[in-house]
């Protein structure tokens, strides 16, 4: 609450120094503040109710032993000590990291490719729209759809593999394939949306740069690496920050398909949190895991912004 209300009157105070008698300005600024607060109120209410309060309560609960049905019992840092000795936690972190790397690598490369195609080749709105279709389908539906299509016994993909003389693959049931398969499903769903963001970035690159490059005799390959990619950096970075934070929180696809299995092969951190909290009624431990994930994501996002200079634009 404090951040927004302090931030709002700042510009008016600045104008107060430069022009007009102080009194009337102060009155006006108070009036602005009131109006500003009214405009901000709905979002602020939602933020406090659904983000701030649960976050603070979550941090509190992470220091307790809490089964949701009883009352929380304060246990200090016991949950955190246990987590650092918990093999399943480290396994979950490893699995999540594997997923994030696969997901980001494939999604970004494919999305850049699609965006270039949308920019240079597929100019029809219909085709651009179709690319966005998977993203408009709910996560759980997409996951179930692929779960059935990739099923070992009765899935159409395995049927096709067999026709082509290849062995069937237990996509979701095999330890090696489980995470790549989950990553594939999410890349398939998100690539259209990511491509659209990058496509918008492409449109922001001034056309004369390409004309000049063309006159200088640069090849297409050179143009791409020397002009397109550097100028796409802010957009790519935004996409990366959003997708990396998002993919660390992979949950629904795992929940409706592998449920953490086989053995521990796809027990990603969010699913592990869900299991400890909601299946095993260990909300204190689950909260502590969530706090750790929160800290990791905050650090990752901070480093990305800092080292990749996300808020600067090379065009300026």
């Amino acid at each position: 609450m404090t951040t927004t209300s302090v931030g709002a009157p700042k510009p008016t105070r600045h104008t107060a120094d430069s022009e007009g008698p102080r009194r009337s300005v102060r009155r006006r600024s108070l009036g602005d503040l009131r109006v500003a607060l009214i405009f901000v109120a709905p979002a602020l209410l939602g933020f406090v109710l659904f983000y701030l309060v649960p976050t603070i309560r979550g941090i509190y609960l992470s220091f307790t032993d809490y089964s949701i049905l009883g009352n929380p019992i304060w246990v200090g840092v016991k949950n955190y000590v246990k987590i650092f000795q918990d093999k399943l936690f480290w396994n979950a972190m490893g699995v999540t990291l594997e997923y994030v790397l696969l997901n980001i690598a494939f999604q970004t490369v494919i999305a850049v490719g699609l965006a270039l195609l949308m920019y240079h080749v597929a100019k029809s709105t219909l085709i651009r729209g179709i690319l966005l279709m998977p993203y408009l389908v709910a996560n759980v539906i997409v996951a179930l759809l692929w779960f059935w299509m990739l099923d070992y016994q009765i899935g159409i993909v395995n049927q096709v593999l067999q026709w082509m003389g290849m062995p069937r693959v237990a996509f979701f049931g095999n330890e090696f394939w489980a995470i790549p398969t989950v990553a594939f499903v999410n890349v398939w769903r998100h690539m259209g949306y990511t491509a659209l963001l990058i496509f918008a970035g492409l449109q922001a690159i001034p056309g004369h740069l390409y004309e000049v490059a063309n006159l200088d005799g640069a090849s297409r390959w050179q143009t791409f690496w020397k002009i397109t990619m550097p100028l796409l950096r802010p957009v790519l970075l935004l996409v990366m920050v959003v997708t990396i934070t998002g993919s660390f929180q992979i949950f629904d696809t795992v929940a409706v398909t592998t449920q953490g299995g086989p053995i521990n092969a796809s027990r990603v951190i969010q699913y592990y949190i869900y299991e400890r909290a909601f299946s095993q009624q260990d909300f204190g431990y689950g909260s502590a895991l969530s706090v750790i994930l929160f800290v990791i994501l905050a650090v990752v996002a901070f480093l990305q912004m800092k080292f990749l200079r996300g808020n600067e634009n090379d065009l300026d």
Partner: peptide, 23 residues
């Protein structure tokens, strides 16, 4: 993912509102 987080938030808020209801 957002939805799952939202559900957690709602559950937490509910827990907050009714923290001592065991009869």
């Amino acid at each position: 993912m957002k939805k799952a987080l939202g559900a957690v938030a709602v559950a937490a808020a509910a827990a907050l509102a009714l923290s001592a209801c065991s009869s």
